[in-house]
Amino acid sequence: MNKNTAFNSKRVILGCLSVAAVIAIYALVTSRPDNNPALLPPITDIITSFWTNLTSGSLLTALGASLFRISAGFLIGTTLALVLGCLIGWYRNIEYLFDPLIEAVRPIPPLAYIPLIIIWFGIGEFSRVLIITIACFMVCVVNVIAGMKNVPAVYEDAASTMGATRFQVFRTVAVPAATPFIITGYRVALAAAWTTLVASELLAAQNGLGFLLQEGRRYFLTDQVMMIIMIIGACAFIMDRIFRKIQAHLMQWSETRE
């Protein structure tokens, strides 16, 4: 326990060190007399932009809108991926049915669907959530399938010689044995959700973090652009940390460390 705490604090210190170094270098560069603040706004400008957007409420509105889209797309996409991925990875016939389709669709970047989605569904909330859902589903389902296919045969044999039916083997052995892969799928999906969120909001949105980015570009508010980028980074980081906590809890049995 003691050793672990030491390990963690060392980790936090070293992690902060690299972030602090980047900030220090940035501060140094922007403090030079020949710096153009329109391209590289000083840190104080970025903080001011944060404060104005925070107090005016526009930042929180944008954050709320974006988090809603991410959550909706992530939950729907990963749930579909979990159900379908488990079935595809376990039942041969379902695999034969869906595998060519998934393999054909997989290399297409989710953003490529944007024009089609706009044509079909317009530029409303549904379209934005749909893009995120597709992105989450595609990266997650591949991991779930891989997990189901990597279940060691000896576990299946052990369960069936103890009298487990095929479905019981699926439920009590294959799915738990695949959890490390499934969790990885969820984490990759979370990253994909953020990537596609900003892209979908850059194209068509009246609010959200991507919209604030777009607004910053249009009115040459470089400090606002910088500020939003940091907000996105921070949010994604916090979400990933929460996810790791959940992962550590679910994976207590596993030998692999975080």
Partner: peptide, 16 residues
């Protein structure tokens, strides 16, 4: 069938 139980050469204990 559960009537014929088996112990394997490999480790078959469910780690989860």
């Amino acid at each position: 069938d559960r009537r014929r139980g088996m112990v394997f050469q490999q480790d078959a204990v469910f780690p989860w």
